[in-house]
């Protein structure tokens, strides 16, 4: 069997596979950002955290031989970046968006600096579970070869959706994100809550980075993240800060991102570069379609600086 036999069916199939493969970092970064933004702060530095996480995971996996240790190291590095952002932002007159941009550049730069020696060696991959065993079509098998992190991400989205309304921590996060005054009146310290939320968001972004370097594309290069960290921030906004929405939006983005390669694989030779831009065009279209000049954003946390 080869790709011509299933013909154009290869395109939706490849998009499904691509959606699952490409979406995983989006899921983690956007869930992390959803937590941070629900606390009333925006962390634009997650792009840098993602790249640094990718480098850290790859380096640790190369040195120890264990992708899981790499994953943990990436999460720890992400946590540090997040906590640093959260700590700086508690000072008066500090703008979270400006700090985020600074950290984005800092994280990428630091990753390139430390990552130079790791461009050559190869690291063990994170495991994937073949769900496509029932079929003997290789495209189906390839599409349904699902990495464990995708499953963890899906479970995490459901868990966060539940936790935002059913746990003390979830409610406190929403209180702080919606009204600092109400939080202070309750005896909560908004800065501490935001520090932890930003730290957690950073750790999740670090895990997203580990997926990039340890599974797909599966190697450490300086161009490993083509702006996924930034797009995930946009994604949180049109997912209306809802974790399930983040998950769905990440899948949509993954699918759109797989459009170009899928068309190429079925023999479309002209203009497929245009389809590589699909996720970006999609971002623009959704942003325009879901915004309005006369109405404020529904569901936005009240303390978020971009919606104030």
């Amino acid at each position: 069997m080869d790709s011509t036999e299933i013909g154009l069916w290869g395109v939706p199939l490849a998009m499904l596979g691509g959606a699952i493969r490409v979406s995983t970092p989006f899921i983690f970064v956007s869930l992390g950002e959803a937590i941070t933004e629900r606390s009333g702060r925006i962390n634009l530095g997650l792009e840098g955290t993602l790249v640094f996480g990718a480098m850290t995971a790859y380096a640790v996996a190369v040195m120890t031989g264990s992708p899981w240790l790499g994953l943990l190291a990436a999460a720890a590095a992400g946590l540090c970046f997040g906590l640093f952002h959260g700590w700086i932002c508690k000072f008066r007159g500090v703008n979270d968006i400006a700090i985020g941009i600074a950290l984005m550049l800092f994280g990428s730069g630091l990753a390139f600096f430390f990552g130079k020696p790791f461009i050559q060696p190869s690291a063990p991959d994170l495991p994937a579970i073949p769900f496509g065993g029932w079929s003997d079509v290789p495209q189906v098998q390839a599409a349904l070869n699902v990495n464990v992190l995708f499953l963890i991400g899906a479970a995490l989205a459901v868990f966060l959706w539940w936790a935002f309304r059913n746990t003390r921590a979830g409610l406190i996060l929403r209180v702080v994100g919606d009204s600092s005054d109400a939080a202070r009146a309750m005896g909560l310290n908004p800065n501490t809550v935001r520090l932890l939320a930003t730290g957690l968001g950073g750790a999740l972004a670090g895990i997203g980075g580990a997926y990039l370097s340890l599974y797909y594309p599966g190697s450490w290069t300086e161009g490993i993240s083509s702006g996924q960290g930034l797009m995930a921030v946009a994604l949180v906004i049109f997912a209306r800060w809802n974790p399930l929405g983040c998950f769905a939006a990440a899948l949509l983005f993954g699918g759109a991102g797989a459009l170009g390669p899928a068309l190429q694989s079925v023999g479309v030779t002209q203009g497929y570069y245009l389809f590589y831009a699909a996720p970006y065009i999609l971002t623009l279209i959704i942003m325009i379609a879901t915004s309005s000049p006369s109405r404020s954003l529904a569901g936005a946390p009240g303390e978020l600086s971009i919606t104030k």
Binding site: R168, L171, V175, S179, A182, A185, M186, P301
Partner: peptide, 26 residues
């Protein structure tokens, strides 16, 4: 008002309490 606008009335009451369990049995 010191109520949190995006939370429901019930959520506002429960979270304002001194002791809130980690997982809330709604």
């Amino acid at each position: 008002f010191t109520l949190v606008p995006s939370l429901t009335g019930a959520e506002n009451l429960v979270i304002a309490r001194e002791k809130v369990p980690g997982i809330i049995d709604w």
